[in-house]
């Protein structure tokens, strides 16, 4: 069994979403994580707040962004256990992030520290 990281790329929701939409979105994400946890395949996860983000450039120049394409910004991730990249991708398909046009969930295998990967 491998571990995969599911990276959410989407727009900053606070400027476009109403309180009701935010609550709905939160509920859906919790249900989605719960469904993965119910299979014993949820490892961990976190949001990455857009506020107070910094980008450190070559020669140590620090900016408050830019993040590049606004829809490409990473808003958070979860780590899951899966038998294959296909299974991990199946989990990703259920993510509410994908309701937004242009949003993506990137699935990447996490390197094992066992010298065989």
């Amino acid at each position: 069994m491998d571990e995969f990281i599911l990276i959410f790329r989407h727009q900053d929701g606070s400027k476009v979403a109403s309180p009701e939409q935010m609550q709905t979105w939160m509920k859906q994400t919790m249900d989605w994580i719960q469904s993965i946890a119910a299979k014993g395949k949820f490892v961990s996860g976190t949001a990455l707040p857009f506020a107070d983000a910094r980008v450190v450039h070559h020669k140590g120049i620090v900016t408050n962004g830019p993040f590049g394409d606004i829809k490409e910004t990473i808003g958070g991730f979860i780590i899951v256990k899966a038998e294959s990249p296909e299974e991990a991708a199946e989990f990703a398909k259920g993510s509410p992030v994908l309701q937004g046009d242009g949003n993506t969930v990137e699935v990447r295998k996490i390197a094992k520290n066992d010298g065989v990967h």
């Binding site: 929701g13 606070s14 979105w25 994580i33 996860g45 506020a51």
Partner: peptide, 15 residues
């Protein structure tokens, strides 16, 4: 401020 508060809740409560 209210909107940002809910965003913070969303980011924290979800996980």
């Amino acid at each position: 401020i209210a909107s940002e508060t809910f965003l913070a809740a969303m980011e924290t409560w979800t996980y």
